[in-house]
Simulated scan of single mutants.
Amino acid sequence: MNEQGDTPTAGAPTAPLAPGTRRPGGRTARTRAAVRDAVLTGLVEHGYPGLTVEYVAEHAGIHKTTLYRRWGNIEGLVADALDLAGEDSWAPPDTGSLEGDLRALAHTTAESFAAPATAAAPTAFIAAAFQSRRAAEALNAFYAGRFARCETIVGRAVARHELDRRTDAGALVRAVVSPLFLRLFITREPVDGELADQCAAAALAAARAGVFGTATDPEGADAPAGPA
């Protein structure tokens, strides 16, 4: 039975601690990591509808009363697992050129979903986001963080005079990966290195043409965007 709507045990708060409001260390961090791993395994094995608090408690080695008290319910557990995933040290590629960075980013995205072993976890999280509002919010925050980190790609390209400084980094990165996600999750078509190269090349051409320009200069001057 799915426990997404179960009521926490008596004395437990009605809502769990909001994901990301605390950065625990030591034993608390180990507990949180164990719960995250159990949630991830459960999502891969059973999907969001089949994930239960009992499953997480058993596989994390933590009493379910503790899970209810700290995370509230399955939604809270999944949301916090995504929040924890966003606290990693991932950094965007730095190949020395904008073209190389975009190609590397596209290839990394495609390769993440190429093999069942590597695709299982992110696919399970994305599927959960279609079934849970809190999971969707957490997934949105996760990718917002990823896009923010990718701003360095545009910053380096501007410094090398490859792009106009008004280029919207988030829009550029989305243009690279969106066709890949369309095939992966909407049309269910295969993705490969050739497609990754095409996505990067198309986004690069659009960026050079000023398609992703913003109306406001980052340094304060309002002007239409265009090639540097």
Rank of each mutant, 00 (worst) to 15 (best):
A175L: 08
A79D: 13
G193S: 11
T216G: 00
G213V: 03
L17F: 04
D6N: 12
H46T: 11
A121T: 13
A18F: 08
T95F: 01
E58F: 01
R174K: 14
A127L: 11
A196L: 00
G170F: 11
F142H: 14
Q131R: 09
H107G: 02
A15G: 03
A138N: 03
N2R: 14
A209M: 02
G96R: 13
T123N: 14
V53I: 15
A18G: 00
S112I: 02
A121I: 09
D168Y: 06
A104K: 08
L102S: 13
P13A: 11
R70V: 03
P190G: 09
D88M: 01
P179Q: 10
T109F: 08
A196R: 00
H59M: 07
A207L: 07
H161L: 05
F142A: 02
E137N: 11
R133Y: 04
P116W: 03
E45P: 09
G76F: 05
L139G: 03
R22C: 07
F125L: 14
A91S: 15
T109Y: 09
E54I: 06
P227Y: 15
P122S: 09
D88W: 02
I74D: 01
A196E: 00
A81I: 09
A202C: 01
D37L: 14
D217S: 11
A221M: 01
A159C: 03
H63Q: 12
H161S: 13
T118M: 04
D217F: 01
G226M: 05
P49K: 06
D94I: 00
A115H: 14
A135W: 02
R23D: 13
